[in-house]
Design a protein around this nucleic acid. Structure first.
Lengths: 236, 236
DNA sequence: TTGATACTTCGGTATATACCGAAATGATGT
DNA sequence: ACATCATTTCGGTATATACCGAAGTATCAA
């Protein structure tokens, strides 16, 4: 009938609550086995298995086999970006007065597929713009010379990042903060550094991040970033 | 349970084939009455009415009442951009050997919400980049001085466009051509000029555009753009 | 081999919802 | 007032599909 792309089929894939849950979990950027995804979605493994094959047939996720586990992950950064775009226009469920602990952690610091998000992501991005490591051109971020030197000092090969097919650096609207954070190839490599330097650690069971005491000091010393320390930061 | 945005609900909205059809038609940027949408989707008015209220409750479309008609349109350019993003990752249904006439028209020239797309959109964009009206920075388009003068000569207030909250100029991946065309505030005003100058006309029943003979000459004279003329161009 | 774990396939049920026919509402023109 | 057209509401049916229990394959560790 019509020869336009079949938007409906993939939207329908995302449209099921359980599958949306799977995708949201994979937005953490890490590969997860089927059972773990089943646990998080509160359904049985059979059910998750069915959903995963559909997502795979739809081209949204891929599998990597390792022994008797099968690790599922998003197929490409483009898929992740599409999901982020969806998140920005999706309604945020109204927050109860006493917001529970778990979402607070997520709001505090998390990974958004492969870059920093949450209060931490926004704080770092805004500090860098203010201190002119980054230049906000309105639709893109550009690295200043100062910024290039910073990344070079972290052993990040900026030229290699530029050659990648994916976007270099752009502002991604944060759904919890309603402000922009740094995404793209640069954003991804920044998270890698934060993890390597042990400024943040991944929590086991969610895509929330934990800022270490060490990391908090470093962020303050180097970029004058002060974060609210009260939330759930029990690592020394 | 989770406090993340409810991606599933709006994805489910887009996930129904009939509703996706509605949204695709509204991507033409024009407001359409319910009956027209019903006709295009090959369903009865009752059915469309139900879908439209759901889309309205979901915040994807708005209504403008005019007499006994109700004109529906996409609620915001952000919604349009999200749909375009979806289109780029959605599978393109395989084209039959003898591609029918209607999709050929769409592939030839169409509006994508409010800017040019299809072969025409890509041709104009690439010509402008080559002739340095536009500068392709990879993730954004910048207007050169030459480009600013061109738009000024068309009575387009470039400064006013820059002040708008929406993106100024960026490349939008064309689903039919698999190449980029110009989108954003600049793209929208360019279409307005093309229509005002009668270089193109809207077809009544789709978002395909018709290039006038007058327009073809102008495009060739001013930008050295040659378009395949064979397709469905019966206007002198 | 036996037993355990990870995952998939099959079959049946239960729920959601897209669709249409019939009828109500509302606006327009005569 | 009446007839007409655009749109919505209601009720009933038919189809799709998410879910789980049970059983089957595959991998690993004794």
């Amino acid at each position: 009938m019509t020869h336009e792309p079949d938007v409906a089929s993939i939207a329908a894939l995302i449209g099921d609550p359980t599958r949306a849950n799977i995708l949201a979990n994979l937005l953490g950027g890490i590969a997860l086995p089927a059972t773990e995804l089943a646990h998080r979605a509160h359904v049985t493994p059979q059910t998750i298995s069915g959903h995963l094959t559909k997502l795979r047939e739809g081209g949204l996720v891929t599998v990597r086999r390792s022994g008797r586990h099968r690790y599922y992950m998003l197929k490409s950064p483009e898929i992740a970006q599409m999901l982020e775009t969806l998140q920005t226009i999706a309604p945020l469920p109204e927050t109860p007065i006493h917001t529970s602990n778990v979402p607070a952690q997520l709001r505090y610091a998390r990974t958004c597929y492969d870059h920093l998000a949450g209060k931490l992501g926004v704080a770092v991005t805004e500090a860098w713009v203010q201190q002119e490591y980054l230049i906000d051109t309105g639709e893109t971020f550009t690295l200043s010379n100062k910024g290039e030197m910073l990344l070079a000092s972290w052993d990040i090969d900026v030229q290699a990042l530029r050659k990648k097919r994916r976007k270099f650096a752009y502002p991604c609207l944060d759904w919890s903060e309603r402000r922009y954070h740094l995404a793209g190839a640069v954003g991804a490599s920044v998270v890698q550094h934060f993890l390597k330097a042990d400024w943040v650690r991944r929590r086991k069971d969610s895509r929330a991040l934990l800022v270490t005491g060490h990391g908090a000091v470093a962020l303050y010393d180097q970029f004058n970033i002060t974060l609210p320390v009260k939330d759930a930061q029990e690592i020394s």
